[in-house]
Nucleic acid binder design. Structure first.
Length: 471
RNA sequence: GCUCCCUUCGUCUAGCGGUCCAGGACGCUGCCCUCUCAAGGCAGAAACACGAGUUCGAUUCUCGUAGGGAGCGCCA
């Protein structure tokens, strides 16, 4: 039997990291088995669902590269089907109309809670013969009241719950619209899903869903309930933890490979390995090896992985993502070094593409003024001779490559009998306006010959101006 | 309140009765390297929630306690 998995988000917001992880797990299980991965949009709640959210989810899936074989399938397109199944259950006596008012149900719930009982529908309308006038009834599923439901969860192990704990849940509202626990079951049956991977907040729903499967005479899929993701502080992940939406990670400068790798390691491991390409994940991941406890999201480790991928992925591939950030920062890649060159030298000094853009402005745009502290320390009269000397040598350089540039600076330092720092630091400030940049040869290389010479002249003028002011 | 579930370094995890005075990774600290910042190399601090059992022997099995989570909707 071919493995069929699905990811079934409800479009009530963006794709968050927890959802992305269950999507990834479902995707990996399907791909590993040469099976089918389905995307289904659970939009039965017309109030909360939105087209923007659907877009956001689709965008998130696309950015992560989690391609699906079937879908997106929208539940709102399947209302006729749910109604049909509901009618069948009604006809077979496996479901019934319930005329109880919401008020009565609420009062019942309160009363039961007060008595220390678990709130459950009391079945008043179960065998009702009359049809009260003027009331549009809901449809309730007739849950077995004997025995218990057991299933082997692929991550949680054996789970057993007594039918006494369950009650007759509403499967259709007065207007006929179906409810979640019913639609998932109908859909997973119709779509022949063989493995249901979802958040463990659904674990308590599973027994009642299993009862519906049985009433429908369908085979059960395997279930795998994965723990949720917590924020850095161990509390449930929410907006106040910063980024929770997948696309926010893109905006913040993370590579999809890094996020995916981080997510797969959250609650799962394979020996001492930390880095996994998508192919390796497919080969090594097994939902049965996922941990049972919730894990906290740690941005520092994500940062480490992100830098790893910025450095190890082909520069051309990273450049495609960097391009997007350059544009968003208002920088034109044409006005400076090739992005692949930039990545080669900058990737090891930043955690995100966004930071890379920030520290690289100076290679694409002229700066307004020298950093005050850096200028005060390095653009002093003593730097004048070294700067003139290096400028002369650089002006004659025909081959503007790091090796030649490194030689030029070293030889200049040797001739002047000074430390590298005596020449590199003033030069660094001249070129970048700050005292921090890549190694001096790489900095020169990225700035380019013409621009380097212009900036050195500018620094010399600055030094003279300061000297004049002082005297 | 009731039901179900979870508990190894700060964090992610390895461990599936003796190989563990508990291994790896991120982070942290120190040293080295060094033209700045990084990166890199080396070293280090850092955990089995607690209490009873079972056993010759428990991180590993059982039961309690404590702490935490989820569910109990005409939301998904």
């Amino acid at each position: 039997m071919t493995v069929r998995t699905r990811f079934a988000p409800s479009p009530t917001g963006f794709l968050h990291v927890g959802g992305a992880r269950t999507a990834l797990f479902s995707y990996l299980q399907a791909r590993a088995a040469g099976g089918v991965f389905i995307l289904r949009i659970e939009d039965t709640d017309l109030e909360r669902s939105s087209a923007e959210s659907v877009e956001a989810i689709l965008d998130g899936m696309a950015w992560l590269g989690l391609d699906y074989d079937e879908g997106p399938i929208f539940q709102t397109q399947r209302f006729d089907r749910y109604a049909e199944v509901t009618q069948n259950l009604l006809r077979e006596g496996k479901a019934y109309h319930c005329y109880c008012s919401k008020e009565r149900i609420e009062a019942l719930r309160e009363e039961q809670m007060k008595q220390g009982l678990k709130p459950r529908y009391d079945g008043l309308c179960r065998d009702r013969a009359d049809v009260p006038a003027g009331i549009r009834p809901v449809v309730r599923f007739r849950n077995p009241d004997q025995g218990n439901v057991e299933f082997d969860d692929r991550v949680r192990g054996r789970i057993s719950i007594s039918n006494n704990e369950l009650d007759d849940l509403v499967i259709a509202r007065p207007d006929g619209s179906p409810t979640y626990n019913f639609t998932v079951v109908v859909d997973d049956i119709d779509m022949a899903v063989t493995l249901v991977i979802r958040g463990d907040d659904h674990i308590n729903n599973t027994p009642r869903q299993i009862n519906i499967y049985r009433a429908l005479g369908a085979n059960l899929p395997d279930f795998a309930h994965v723990p949720m993701i917590l924020g850095d502080d161990g509390a449930r992940l929410s907006k106040r933890h910063g980024a929770v939406g997948v696309m926010q990670y893109r905006d913040d400068g993370y590579l999809p490979q890094a996020l995916l790798n981080y997510l797969v390691r959250l609650g799962w491991s394979s020996g001492d390995e930390e880095v996994f390409s998508l192919q390796e994940m497919i080969a090594k991941f097994d939902i049965a090896d996922v941990n049972r406890k919730a894990s906290a999201f740690n941005t520092e480790k994500l940062d480490w992985l992100n830098q790893h991928y910025m450095r190890s992925l082909p520069a051309a591939e990273v450049a495609q993502h960097l391009q997007w950030h350059m544009q968003h920062a208002g920088l034109d890649p044409e006005h400076g070094p090739a992005l692949t060159d930039l990545i080669e030298v900058q990737a090891e000094r930043v955690k995100t593409l966004r930071e890379m853009v920030e520290i690289s402005r100076v290679f694409y745009q002229d700066f307004e003024s020298f950093d005050a502290g850096a200028a005060k320390k390095h653009l002093r009269p003593v730097a004048e001779q070294p700067l003139r000397a290096i400028a002369d040598r650089l002006a004659d350089l025909s081959d503007w490559v790091p090796e030649q540039l490194d030689q030029a600076v070293r030889i200049t330092a040797e001739h002047m009998e000074v430390n590298m720092g005596k020449i590199a630091q003033p030069l660094r400030v001249a070129l970048t306006a700050t005292a921090v940049s890549p190694s001096i040869d790489k900095t020169l290389w990225l700035v380019g010959q013409q621009r380097s010479l212009q900036r050195i002249s500018r620094a010399l003028a600055f030094i003279e101006m300061r000297a004049a002011e002082a005297s």
